[in-house]
Design a protein around this nucleic acid. Structure first.
Length: 494
RNA sequence: GGGCCAUUAGCUCAAUCAGGCAGAGCAGCUGACUCUUAAUCAGAAGGUUACAGGUUCGAUUCCUGUAUGGCCCA
């Protein structure tokens, strides 16, 4: 193993050696290969956009050399910065012998500051005629191929910095991600929501059904969980009178990885006092569609060859109706767990013998309905047993005032009227604790302090969680969640 | 956790099916070229075929295990 590595290192060193020698040559010429602050007065996109005004004008810009074409005593290169890419022209007669030597030594990947004037070549390409150049950083590694870029997904994730240099569409995804999240914040801020930060490290991991990561605080000699959701803390703030709060940040769930799951992922959660699940539905529809319109310039996006139309209103359908449509099963007449069990068996679905009617409804839904939900669809009326933090429906207390939003077969949002009856909440927790005792490691833990908070009185409230990464996948046509997370979780090498 | 697939030069890929000297393009190196743009032309170089074993006269190729990644399933 180590033998293999040393041989690989020697190979890399042969390429790196040449660059280290060039670096030494620069130093001998009195040039610092790793320069400092450089003042730019423009960028590549601005030059291309304002050519008529800038023609013949002097400009100062900086960036990374991405290609080089030498022709004896003149040559071209391309310089890339955040905004794009522009051609540079070096002519020995104009730039002088010494600077022209620098151009000859310059490697693809080097970062330079450039001063020169803007012109158009005979072939019509807007170009900067270089009059002065300054080394800002010497690159010691060769960049991946200019034409095919970096394709090896493992390398792209492990060395995202290289991916970002050579694959411009990757950079665009993360710029769009940032704009999307900023637009969400603006939307909520404009409507009087207060952005807050609640604990990432929690003594009790609550607010969702998931296995948590465990860590340890030395000074307190106490185990802590990385949060699986901020929900119970945000609702404590509703008790405290903050009325409209939201948080956009990471949750951590100790589960397998897939194209839709990363152990740390970004959620938006928001709570609105004196509102309910219907308000959340209106908010979800308006917020998501208007933010997508703002960021994408259209209510339609293409994902894996299908057009998703975010134009409101979105379809609203109860979970039982959806099941009836896609399986023919009518759970309104299947009133007992035994009947539900038998019906599921007829579909060919194996369910745990201990499952309740509500749990079976959920399993049938996940198995036979989710795959049909492509366009934005609100699924409403979830069974009580799978909704331990939601208010019961006033008329049908075996269901809750809740919805989930599905798009492209994925759960994107989850919202409900928040349960504010501390006695009811205590009972629900007790049921979860029983399930936990029976080995369900995803069941909720008892949170006495949360009950205590509810006992002070929490106003009725609507609350919602939105999976940001999955939404970003949809608007950037990214098939894997790893394509929208800068540094996705990977097994460490060695 | 299970199944399937992949791993060859710094990068992108051939050769693997059916065992017989491991090849190309880009990048790098040497040289020519003062408006090129996947620049061009000439030349030389670059490999423990992921790792460890096995079968064989001979293994990148077949077999076993390991590592990492991908897809599907849980």
């Amino acid at each position: 193993m180590s033998e293999h590595e040393t041989s690989q290192e020697t190979n890399i060193n042969e390429l790196k050696k040449v660059r280290l020698e060039k670096l030494e040559e620069l130093r001998e010429m009195g040039i610092n290969p790793f320069g400092s602050r450089y003042i730019r007065d423009t960028d590549t996109a601005a030059i291309l956009q304002n050519y008529t005004a800038l023609e013949g004008q002097k400009v100062s810009l900086a960036g990374r050399i991405m290609s080089k074409r030498r022709h004896g005593k003149a040559g071209f290169a391309n310089l890339q910065d955040l905004t794009g890419n522009i051609q540079l022209y070096f002519k020995k007669d104009d730039i002088g012998e010494e600077k022209y030597e620098l151009f000859k030594k310059m490697d693809i990947g080097d970062i330079l500051g450039i001063k020169g004037f803007v012109f158009r070549t005979q072939k019509g390409e807007i170009t900067v005629h270089v009059e002065d150049m300054q080394y800002l950083a010497k690159s010691l590694h060769p960049l991946p191929e200019k034409w095919h870029g970096l394709k090896d997904v493992e390398l792209r994730y492990r060395q995202r910095y290289v991916d970002l240099i050579v694959n411009p569409e990757v950079r665009d995804v993360f710029i769009k991600r940032s704009r999307f999240i900023k637009a969400l914040r603006n939307y909520l801020d404009d409507r009087g929501f207060l952005e807050v930060e609640t604990p990432m490290m929690q003594p009790i991991a609550g607010g969702a059904a998931a296995r948590p990561f465990i860590t340890h605080h030395n000074a307190l000699d106490m185990d802590l969980y990385l949060r699986i959701a901020p929900e119970l803390y945000l609702k404590r703030l509703i008790v405290g009178g903050l009325e409209k709060v939201y948080e956009i940040n990471r949750n951590f769930r100790n589960e397998g990885l897939s194209t839709r799951h990363n152990p740390e992922f970004t959620m938006l959660e928001l709570y609105q006092a004196y509102g309910d699940w219907q308000d959340m539905m209106e908010l979800a529809e308006d917020m998501i569609s208007s933010v997508i319109l703002k960021v994408n310039g259209s209510m339609q996006t293409e994902f894996e060859g299908k057009i998703i139309d975010f134009t409101p209103p979105w379809q609203r359908i109860t979970m039982l109706e959806a099941i009836n449509i896609h399986t023919g099963l009518d759970f309104t007449v299947l009133q007992t767990a035994q009947e539900a069990q038998a019906a599921a068996a007829r579909l060919g679905l194996k369910v745990d013998a201990k499952s309740t009617r509500g749990e079976i409804i959920n399993e049938v839904f996940e198995e036979y309905v989710e795959a049909h939900l492509v366009q934005p669809t609100f699924i409403t009326g979830h069974p009580l047993e799978i909704s331990p933090l939601a208010k019961k429906n006033a008329e049908h207390p075996e269901y809750t005032d809740r919805f989930e939003l599905f798009i492209m077969q994925r759960e994107i949002a989850n919202a409900f009227s928040e349960l504010n009856d501390p006695l009811d909440q205590q009972e629900r927790f007790m049921k979860q604790v029983e399930k936990r005792a029976q080995g369900d490691s995803e069941a909720h833990m008892m949170d006495e302090d949360y009950i205590n908070a509810l006992e002070y009185g929490m106003p009725p409230a609507g609350g919602m969680g939105i999976g940001i990464d999955r939404l970003i996948m949809l608007i950037t046509n990214s098939p894997s969640i790893r394509d929208v997370i800068l540094f996705p979780t990977l097994r460490s090498r060695e």
